[in-house]
Design a protein around this nucleic acid. Structure first.
Lengths: 114, 114
DNA sequence: CATTCCTACTACTCCATGTAGAAAAGCCGC
DNA sequence: GCGGCTTTTCTACATGGAGTAGTAGGAATG
């Protein structure tokens, strides 16, 4: 559902890492590629339609911010990939079989500290 | 990388659930939609290019099978979503915070039985 | 009010995917 | 070996998402 293109992802990265809201011009200035502001605005509008960014329309350069943190978004993706099906556990089992010992230990800690 | 369209996914589901290899005609017959065999063949070729299916070329209807089980594929997706970045653990923590008690228990069991 | 800034609308390209016909290639019974 | 059926390949077109940006229209400010 929330599949991102390269440019969209770059923009989201800025919003995620920057923490606060940015105007279209600020976004453009922080991007590596040298793009027209209209391009950035188009991308921001598309991200808004995807509910990935919120737009503050009351200020005059509109300001854009991520609606969810990168981690929240990744968890959403994770659950999307995992689905609600019964094979969730089978997949998780297989996943756990492939992680490092350190990560397994970290997971145990997380589970225990609930 | 291995992003699937609707039809591609339907075909993979058949190959995953069926267990064994199928010919293009068999795939077509088992699909809900009534499609031309050529359509199915195109899709199978594309899936082959994506390394999602293997094709047995020595038999005369070629036979197609999934190169990885559904679980294996899902785990791949999972790792793709998770990435190799440092925030893997942060994401996992958040993920674990959102799962059911039953699933948490299952996870603990899986981790311990390693 | 004129200038400058910002946004909305429109448009074009490229690529993935769904869809299938036409043609080529392989096989089977005669 | 040949005609005809089956299967595969090649080519093609439509649709939709994403990258990219121009142009026009609306807002702010001196």
């Amino acid at each position: 559902m929330a599949t991102l293109g390269d440019l969209e992802r770059s923009v989201m990265t800025l919003l995620w890492d920057g923490g606060e809201s940015l105007s279209a011009n600020e976004v453009r200035d922080r991007l590596d590629e040298d793009l027209a502001v209209t391009t950035v605005l188009t991308v921001l509008s598309r991200l808004e339609k995807k509910s990935m960014v919120a737009r503050e329309r009351s200020t005059r350069p509109h300001r854009y911010s991520a609606t969810a943190s990168r981690e929240e978004h990744t968890v959403e993706m994770l659950n999307e990939v995992l689905g609600t099906a019964s094979d969730r556990e089978a997949v998780l089992a297989r996943f756990i079989g492939g992680i490092s010992d350190a990560e397994a230990a970290a997971l145990r800690r997380m589970l225990d500290s609930e």
